[in-house]
Design a protein around this nucleic acid. Structure first.
Length: 459
RNA sequence: GUGGCUAUAGCACAAUGGUUCGUGCACCGGUCUGUGGCACCGGCAAUGAGGGUUCGAUUCCCUCUAGCCACCCCA
């Protein structure tokens, strides 16, 4: 019951900033993505792992990197009652590595392939496709350094999007192992130091703090400089170079197009060697290497061959990929997919009169047990409001049970689309509905195919 | 953390320094104990919070909060 304004508390509870409710009308998108993720995982033999949301703060400080923005200002960190500093996970890989070490997964057949889906937390300013509680899925293959795995993970990621109806562009680069990267960073700083005056203010700061980020500044002047800046691939040691060349050779064998993006670097400290991102394909002429906007990457990943060791485990090479669910939904909606409709009830049970109401409650249960999706509006009396409800819910058939039907031990089946209705024996109702639903499915499948063909002809 | 724009009903949008802030959709009910998509009738429901200017503020000003957009960063 809605209260009168004066009775209502002055301050209503409100969503915390950057948090949101996922309402029923959005759930079909979430289900769709979760289903796609699980199906890809099963196809590539990745086993599901769920790690806790809360971990020791130090886990992320050591893995993500002390000087990254994530650790410096975006983590939800607080003291547990015991006094231990804990953090609500800002990303997934660190926990997976912790679990790998803690459960002795090095004794399992390598590589260990794991995937996860769940909420993550960053105290960031909300924006399009960005929330403080956001959802990611991820795939990790731990315990093997072969280049073929790099290619396979990238193919998995690419296929996940492609099969969900989102064409993506795969951007690939290698930043080498830590020593290669140090050499490169030095070369990059040297290059920019002599050209410092041409840089924007932001980039001058980047030069000191995070030089690799200089490469994807959006200022035109900085872009010009970035064109001629040293490239990571030129600073790879022999091993790293060989690995990366092999990765590209494997990619060439696959039926996916990728872009070698020498300016791609990733934000977290633990990455080494191969790095990649998946960008939504904006247009047919998608050859330009500039992202439409900075947060437009749907997902990304790379090797982190030194992370597990740095967390106290045995030296264990690994590669992973993770993607943002909210951003994927933005893309799905942008493409006006029909995912949002959700499942429609098969049957609406309408009743008329007390006797019918009593009997229809039982009927509802029987139908439900026969795995039909059943809707009703038992509390309504008139037939008209019930039919309205059946229509609004999009029920395919209505079963009408009134005085007359009770007397004759029959029931009325109404096809909601055509309006044609037929009286059948009460006991036969379930069977009859089943028969009609099958017919309905066939008719609709044909219709959808026809529509798609027409679309192709016209488009 | 920085900058810009915004805040009226569940949603989309109107209007106004002065009785009672409108419309559409949605929702509830009625016409209607035997039939949905149509129609008609009725109902519910709002100026984000706090302060200031003013005789009077939803309107003008400030602060806060939230949303959107961009930056930073990231998914």
């Amino acid at each position: 019951m809605p209260k009168k304004p004066e009775e209502r508390a002055k301050k209503q509870p409100q969503l915390l900033r950057g948090m949101r409710d996922i309402l029923p009308e959005d759930q079909p998108y979430w289900n769709f993505i979760r289903t796609r993720v699980a199906s890809v995982a099963s196809a590539y033999s990745f086993g599901r792992i769920d790690c806790p949301i809360l971990e020791e703060a130090s886990l992320f400080i050591r893995s993500v990197g002390k000087d990254t923005d994530i650790v410096e200002k975006e983590m939800y960190t607080f003291e547990e009652k015991s006094g231990t500093p804990v953090t609500m996970r800002p990303e997934g890989t660190a926990s997976i590595c912790r679990a790998y070490i803690e459960h002795g997964m090095l004794n399992r057949p390598q590589p260990v392939k794991l995937y996860y889906v769940g909420p993550f937390f960053r105290y960031d300013r909300p924006q399009a496709g960005r929330y403080r509680q956001f959802y990611q899925f991820g795939f990790e293959a731990l315990g093997d350094d072969h280049a073929v795995l790099d290619a396979q993970i990238m193919m998995l990621a690419y296929n996940l999007y492609a099969e969900a109806g989102i064409p993506v562009s795969l951007q690939v680069n290698s930043i080498g192992h830590p020593e290669c990267r140090d050499g490169y960073r030095k070369a990059l700083v040297d290059y920019y130091r002599t050209r410092k005056n041409a840089l924007c203010e932001e980039c001058k700061r980047r030069l000191l703090k995070n030089p690799l980020r200089l490469l994807d500044c959006k200022e035109p002047d900085c872009q010009v400089l970035a064109q001629d800046a040293p490239q990571t691939v030129d600073y790879l040691c022999e091993d790293c170079n060989k690995h990366f060349v092999t990765v590209l050779e494997h990619l060439d064998e696959l039926d996916i197009s990728y872009v070698l993006n020498t300016r791609l670097v990733r934000g977290l400290d633990y990455y080494s060697g191969t790095v990649f991102e998946l960008w939504p394909e904006t247009s047919e002429a998608g050859e330009n290497q500039v992202k439409a906007s900075s947060q437009s990457a749907l997902g990304g990943g790379g090797r982190y061959d030194y992370l597990i060791e740095s967390l106290g485990g045995q030296p264990t090479p690994a590669i992973g990929f993770s993607g943002g669910i909210e951003r994927m939904i933005v893309e799905l909606k942008r493409r006006q997919s029909d995912i949002g409709k959700g499942p429609l009830p098969d049957i609406f049970v309408a009743q008329l009169g007390d006797a019918a109401r009593k009997k229809s409650l039982k009927l509802f249960e029987d139908l439900r047990r026969s795995s039909f999706k059943v809707a009703e509006s038992f509390s309504k009396d008139g037939l008209k409001p019930q039919m309205e409800m059946a229509h609004k819910l999009g029920a395919k058939f209505a079963l009408i049970l009134g005085q007359k039907e009770i007397m004759d031990d029959t029931i009325l089946i109404r096809d909601m689309e055509s309006g044609i209705q037929e009286t059948v024996h009460y006991a036969k109702a379930s069977e009859e509905i089943k028969r009609r639903l099958e017919k309905y499915m066939v008719v609709h499948r044909d219709r959808v195919q026809e529509q798609e063909q027409t679309k192709e002809h016209n488009g």
